[in-house]
Design a protein around this nucleic acid. Structure first.
Lengths: 355, 355
DNA sequence: CAAAAGATGGCAACCGGTTGACATACCGCC
DNA sequence: GGCGGTATGTCAACCGGTTGCCATCTTTTG
């Protein structure tokens, strides 16, 4: 990790510099290892080794070359390096929907740990479509060292196919044979259902997410299991789309279901649902409790603030990136599943049922 | 930043993942123009021309080559192309803060128009620091065809220096000689101040953003001008940081100022401020009106929903990308300023003053 | 002190496209 | 038929690193 420009106070006019301006267009092109080699009086290949294969050259030569590199303000040309090696110092991240705040934290987590290790992140969006996703993934695959798929919509086979070409890490879904980072929903769901049961609720509705969503199914299973245990009746409702708007639309189904507590696939649905129910005169949480999922940005903006099962999304992004980078460095991960804990964040939207 | 405390359970290891086959020597590597050349019975350079210089080869040969390429499922190696040409089909985007939802629409706008024209986007964050920003910009510069700076914190000179090396577009700030996309705040501010004046307010506070923020200054100027016109008294307050938390912290200053209406540098500040004021027993908007800026995701989650001056951020991102791509195609943009309209979105947080 | 082992640097062949220079092939035209 | 001109394809030299192989030089060891 070279940091050549400390506090740069670029002032003087360009051209005063002693840098020999060669190169066709008269532009000052950046120095190459050949320039360094000339300056240091060694062979270019030695420069290459000094700069990328620690220990391969003697300490003395190493020093000379590093000084020369410093002096010329050298930085490797990523393309020239990528060409023979395939290494690009770049990881790709594909998310289902850039505007969905669920992914904000994931993106940031991945970007942060990526750039901490000097990897650049490239971002693409699948717009919730398996086909777009696959296309984006394929297009990326040739230009990145590894790929992170957040909540992928492709099927397992396609993911494994990708993973057989380049290292892949998956977030929010389990795929056999591919390293995954998955929030373990059971803990958070248990807490949520227990809390609801303790507050007098007896019938609970789960508002599901997109049918292709592995995580939505998983959450439903968790809800069922917990309801079983705590002796609540659970019903499942479908949403048209996992957004605020979808939440509003599902409000009448919720009312019709007779449930007094609702757990939604994500916070957006919960927020939309709450808005619509309140607009219809329902009091939250006195008449109905609402629990979301993920604890996204804005979940505490609502009145009452949203009770939600928090998934540490930033950590998911971050760990997925770390997993990937470890694989790239050869620390072959076992391809297992990393589970991160979820927990209930109790705010105002859930509570005692005042029947 | 993120710390992974022990709340992590590493579990299952489903079927030992088979290590991806290293791209060995005889392995199925992707086809090259040489493969196409052999198949089509022509010289590699002819293939190169057929694929990138339309019209340079005869229609007949063109067809043969395209068919061969199709048959082999050929795709260019971006690095091999980038090496001699410098063209990378990639644009960089640097934002001040990835977690700030303001930027999400920008990111999305840029990504969408970028990928529509077959450009990949790479993303970096400056963490609101001019130095980090410059470093990131420099690092990116060598690997992208052009750069978009969203709300840059560097000074004008540095930006112009970057712009002299590669095409640069700026969002949310005007820099002489560099193409910029800037929401024209005056319209929205006028509407806001007029509306506040009409509702009986006489003293207005502006909560400023980061000192380096060009846009914050601009908004303050706009507020001053509008207050002048509508005969309101305007005071300026400083915030510690442009976040929800910063908004909470500035609440006491707001109260102390005696203003009955507040316009904040951005929505996050407005939301935090409103939360804190409400917690202190103030009624919004009966006792104090609050107007934010940007209309970010979640601005309508609050109770009352936030009145805000909407900047079309997605459009900003999109237009900046378009500007950049046009420059890359040689349509030399005049380096002027593109202004997009802002408008007041009236929701519940502003209204008549019930003194 | 000689031989074997190890460390170090140089040479040159790539990686996969791009492109200027040049040789033909092809065309129309006098 | 010969000539100039253009269309088309080929050759070869890059772009800037990486790396296998080999020649030396140094060190260790018997």
């Amino acid at each position: 990790m070279h940091d050549y420009d400390g506090a740069v106070t670029q002032v003087t006019n360009p051209g005063a510099a002693t840098v020999p301006a060669r190169r066709g267009r008269g532009e000052k092109s950046s120095p190459t290892i050949y320039d360094i080699a000339k300056l240091a009086g060694v062979n270019p290949s030695t420069v290459s080794r000094a700069l990328s294969k620690p220990g391969r050259v003697s300490a003395k030569t190493q020093k000379i070359i590093e000084d020369a590199a410093e002096q010329l303000n050298y930085r490797v040309n990523p393309f020239a390096r990528a060409l023979p090696t395939g290494r690009t110092q770049t990881i790709g991240l594909i998310v289902a929907d850039i505007t969905n705040p669920t992914f904000f934290d994931i993106i940031r987590g991945a970007e942060t740990t990526g750039s901490a290790r000097d990897y650049t992140m490239v971002l693409a969006e699948s717009a919730e479509s398996p086909e777009t996703e696959l296309t984006a993934a394929r297009r990326m695959l040739s230009t990145v060292d590894g790929l992170i798929l957040a909540s992928p919509r492709m099927d397992d086979e396609q993911i494994r196919a990708l993973a057989s070409e380049k290292p892949v890490a998956v977030i929010n879904r389990e795929v056999d044979g591919v390293p995954c980072v998955v929030p373990d929903v059971n803990k958070g769901i248990s807490q949520a259902v227990r809390s609801l049961a303790a507050n007098g609720h007896q019938k609970l509705a789960y508002v599901a997410g997109p049918p292709q969503s592995w995580m939505s199914r998983r959450r439903w299973e968790g809800v069922q299991a917990a309801c079983d245990w705590y002796k609540l009746e659970a019903v499942r409702l479908e949403s048209s789309k996992p957004t605020v708007d979808g939440g509003r639309q599902v409000a009448r189904d919720v009312l019709a279901s007779g449930a007094t507590a609702v757990i939604t696939y994500n916070d957006l649905l919960a927020i939309g649902l709450m808005q619509e129910l309140q607009a219809a005169g329902m009091r939250v949480p006195d008449q109905i409790s609402i629990v979301g999922f993920d604890d996204i940005f804005g979940a505490d903006f609502t009145t009452p603030a949203l009770t939600t099962v928090r998934s540490p999304l930033g950590e998911c992004g971050s760990r997925a990136a770390a997993l990937l980078l470890d694989m790239l460095l050869g620390h072959e991960g076992p391809g297992g599943v990393v589970r991160v804990d979820t927990e209930l964040v109790v705010r105002g939207s859930s509570g005692r049922l005042l029947a």
